[in-house]
Design a protein around this nucleic acid. Structure first.
Lengths: 251, 251
DNA sequence: TCGAATTTGTGCGTATGTATC
DNA sequence: GGATACATACGCACAAATTCG
């Protein structure tokens, strides 16, 4: 490779990526086969293979052994609005409110069990490892489609022996926590959301309708009342279908 | 490859991965060279190469040309705090403020060019496609390590023919959007951050010290003044090393 | 049902360029 | 400069899966 040029396999990958992005190669169409890439671009078999591997790693295409390499569908991600800040009603704002709190419409399934806090959960809830907690698993759907997995933990020291002990009673997902806590005279006043991303585990992607390795967004959310954690949760959403929107005041 | 066996390169990768995970090969140590792998495992050069590539794609090791392949440190992901909400000083809070706005310490490189707004950027800035904008590319580093890529767009209608036209030059260079706009009597009052995740492109991951396919977090950030966008940016951070923390008031 | 052609995925041997020590 | 190591590149072979006549 002469100085200053990029490797041949990246040059080929760039050209194929461009054709995918500009619509020359729309979703579900077949990429040129490795043999055709070799002749069309005048490169070796190895270069054609490496170029396909780059596009596969980037998620643009998937290979089907014996059949071909196909352009993957890339749906426009929907927004999940995760913010406590709302401008006053009636005020003109640039934010499309019609999308609403999509995360909290639709249906869900849940199941709760009592458990003891793991060290990680204990740290997030500022309790001792081994303390009793209520653990609840959720699967949220919008329009029937799986959208978000959630596991939440609440210290039984807060909700135990109260009508709010079981989270699935009443509305769910953030507002649910706030309102259930309010019924206990616990005023939830702020929340932290810690956003990360990683390849999805097989269990997660199968529940969310994907394949292992698809990227997921993971949010560690903790609600606080007067500086004390009252609930923490791990939210997992498929990154190819959703984005997470925050709307914040400055200063 | 006989039935029921896995490919040779995966067998080699599994063994090396095990040695990394059980501490036989601690961080910063060098993997056996490709030539040594070939002889130690009795495989071909290609198999040794593919095995190294698997571990690189998984983020366990990184290759340094001419030197060796080294076990990467896999630290707990650091937090990038992305919030305008700060509790009053002196008040007891559960948030570790010592981590500060890590994203904006360290060093960076940038380059600005004038360009015309693409339809997507025009929509984000609420201007017309083709309108003039100032586009600036950044590469942020912390402690010398690449940490975040950023591309920002500002309408020239806002900053044109003012000392703040070039984000990194003039009396307010490098001080951030809010301060630079304040110098123009433009009061930035809120911001939206739209968080997504996807496999990184080859270009991005090479700049960030990874390989194509490594998961990146992408934040589309837009600053508003009186309801009008004054700057929008795409931030790209490697998801295996960073998380993004939001701290929000409830209600 | 069979078989031929195509395609991906895996594997091998070799060569060359370039970075590092 | 020399030795070592990674990165790229070429050409080939074969197995498994798929497609299609």
């Amino acid at each position: 490779m002469p100085f200053g040029e990029q490797p041949a396999y990246l040059r080929v990958a760039d050209d194929l990526r461009r054709k995918i992005l500009d619509g020359t190669l729309p979703p579900h169409t077949r990429l040129p086969s490795q043999a055709r890439i070799r002749t069309e671009y005048g490169v070796s078999d190895t270069v054609a293979l490496e170029a396909r591997k780059v596009l596969m790693a980037e998620g643009f295409v998937e290979g089907r052994s014996g059949s071909g390499t196909y352009v993957r569908e890339r749906p426009e991600p929907r927004r999940i609005i995760r913010t406590g800040y709302h401008p006053a009603a009636g005020q003109s704002t640039p934010f499309r409110q019609e999308q609403g709190d999509e995360g909290f419409k639709g249906t869900w399934e849940s199941s709760s069990v009592q458990a003891t806090a793991t060290p990680r959960i204990a740290e997030r809830l500022r309790i001792q490892p081994g303390d009793r907690v209520m653990r609840t698993n959720y699967l949220f759907r919008t329009e029937g489609e799986p959208m978000m997995l959630s596991t939440s933990w609440e210290p039984l020291a807060v909700t135990g022996r109260t009508p709010a002990m079981l989270p699935e009673e009443g509305p769910v997902g953030g507002q649910g926590v706030v309102q259930r806590m309010a019924a206990l005279d616990v005023v939830v006043d702020h929340v932290t959301e810690d956003v990360g991303a990683r390849p999805g585990l097989a269990e997660e992607t199968s529940l969310l309708g994907g394949v292992p390795g698809h990227v997921v967004i993971e949010i560690q959310r903790t609600y606080y009342a007067s500086g004390l954690p009252v609930e923490t949760a791990d939210l997992v959403v498929p990154a190819d279908r959703y984005r997470v929107a925050y709307h914040l005041p400055v200063k």
